[in-house]
Write a protein that binds this DNA or RNA. Structure first.
Lengths: 342, 342
DNA sequence: CTGAAAGCGCTTACAG
DNA sequence: CTGAAAGCGCTTACAG
């Protein structure tokens, strides 16, 4: 079998307690003994057994990350931010996705008991948030990311989706657009609802009528909405999609249908995923620092005093930034001649 | 504190052994007792302590995934494939990236001891593969992904990069291109070397001269190469980049410099990341089923008999598929009139 | 500074 | 079918 602390102790002629202390950098070990233990451990290629260590020390050196999904640019960016900080602190990451099924979230959370020291959870569903507390391992520090929060709930860090959507609407209105359609996200999704609210609030302030197409955040639904727009008897001046993926899908459908962006219809998204910079025309969007969201979440989880105890329920908010690209050039542009490129 | 197996035992009026058996679905528990235990466990919201369970059972229900990085479309896709299978089997994923630093790979591997039942490792470096065995936790099943393999090394699953690059070259040659430049990947990277080898082999077979630009797989290096091409006294007919990100960067630089793709220069990449379908013009590439690579790797790790023992060292190979898009339209196309779209 | 021993929360032969 | 007990590999008061 594998080499254990006993093997090291025997070989170094000390007790396992001393080996443990030496390896963990405790001060009360004679310098000479420490060196001997370390060298023996090295020779034997000893590596402490994690489960044993965490069972007795009650610490796992691991942070659990529970997400709706692992797939796509958004989660990839989020993980990058979390991973960066985890690595700095020498922590491991146990990731678990519940694949968009809110029902499986509880199981994922419960499975974290005894595996992690703290939990990062993204739970963007509007329904079923009450039961969340029940599934949370007892007395486990937790920070919510981009999730609806109760006043007495856990610490939380999110994006100002409402303010961001309003800022985008102001940009579109300033560019002279009056008829602005919105591609909404999933009904049950918190971010989606907040963005929709920003849209309707801005329109109401301008005395204009909302015009909403249903969507579910993925490219295909944006593509469908684009197809519907092409068929529609009248067309909007601009389309604001609740996220970039839908904006891209919509833009794709429009260009396939011979509708020019931004000359015929301006398009804007939300998130600023890497793709948005590359498409043609480049997409105007609200930049969300997704990696930063993850980094801030894990840092605040690790902060001292950040226990599940009541009291200092901090709720941070990240403010997205307007990024104007070609897809929303003002209408006053010289109309383009028919393009000869495909 | 948290509720333990003892609490359940006491409340259900049985021994902890019986609770353990009931919870683990062993057959030798009276039906009535089983029901009682399960119901008590449920009432108490009991969830087994993972470290304790794995210390005594010697199983962790967790697979370790050690990657060069967590960031970007490639790893996101890979994780998706792995996660899908893991979830099917009720396994957790402990992910660890060594951030492109081969030196840190050893530490990442050693830290897996006692945390995982098996290991998925991507180690695309040509140097330092010998020491890999030393860092591997003793008698731990492991499957290598996209890594150079020794004949007596662990099981491995990879992509036929050499064959894929040759296939792409044949496509470009058939399209009538004679002067074909190559944007290479990092010198120390196994995939990059294999693709380069496919390029040079195909050229040699056609009696043509190689023309290689250095790169490191990221978009910026492709952009630099594109800039160099624009300045060059003569230009190639086509550019074959060792991966899509570089191809995209190159294409971007060319279009900024007024060089038309594919009319002036054809471009091709490798990987078929999602972005490649969206850019303008869409990128010709070799499709690698990245998620499938991950899925196959974890499945083969989980296969019975897949121990570290010698013998059945299976080495699977995935064959990439040629995807021809606009960026490599044959030269015989009607030359496009100057475009009026930006 | 060091060691013997208890204990972390489970699982699993071993008896019955 | 069930229980008492050993044991998994560590850490950490408690003595000395």
């Amino acid at each position: 079998m594998s080499v254990t602390i006993k093997d090291v102790a025997r070989r170094a002629n000390v007790s396992v307690a001393t080996v443990s202390r030496a390896l963990n950098g405790h001060q009360n070990v004679a310098e000479e003994v420490r060196k001997r233990v370390l060298s023996v451990a090295d020779q034997l290629r000893y590596s402490p057994h994690h489960a044993a260590r965490s069972l007795s020390s009650r610490r796992t050196q691991t942070i659990g990350v529970v997400l709706p999904d692992l797939y796509g640019e958004f989660f990839s960016e989020l993980m990058r931010g979390i991973d960066h900080v985890a690595r700095e602190r020498g922590l491991h990451l146990l990731v678990s996705s519940y694949h968009g099924h809110p029902q499986e979230q509880g199981a994922a959370l419960r499975a974290m008991r005894g595996r992690v020291d703290g939990l990062l959870l993204m739970s963007p569903f509007l329904e079923g948030q009450e039961s969340l507390a029940d599934d949370m391992p007892a007395s486990m520090p937790v920070v919510l990311m981009g999730s609806p929060v109760a006043a007495d709930g856990p610490a939380s860090i999110g994006v100002d989706n409402h303010g961001g959507a309003k800022a985008m609407m102001e940009h579109l209105l300033e560019a002279g657009h009056r008829s602005i359609a919105f591609l909404s996200g999933p009904d049950d999704n918190f971010d989606a609802r907040e963005r929709l609210r920003g849209y309707t609030d801005a329109l109401a302030a301008a005395g204009l009528e909302p015009w909403v197409f249903p969507g579910d955040f993925d490219e295909a639904s944006g593509h469908r909405a684009g197809g519907a727009l092409i068929q529609a008897p009248r067309r909007p001046d601009a389309v604001f999609a609740a996220n970039d993926m839908m904006a891209l899908g919509c833009m794709f459908a429009l260009s396939q249908g011979g509708v020019r962006v931004p000359d015929d219809i301006a398009i804007a998204g939300f998130d600023d995923i890497p793709l948005s910079r590359y498409v043609h025309p480049a997409l105007t969007t609200m930049r969300v620092e997704i990696a930063e969201l993850g980094a801030r979440a894990i840092r605040s989880l690790l902060e001292p005093g950040q226990e599940t105890a009541e009291g200092s329920r901090l709720q941070e908010l990240l403010f997205p930034e307007l990024v104007v690209r070609q897809s929303s050039r003002p209408r006053t542009d010289t109309p383009a001649a028919p393009s000869t490129t495909s």
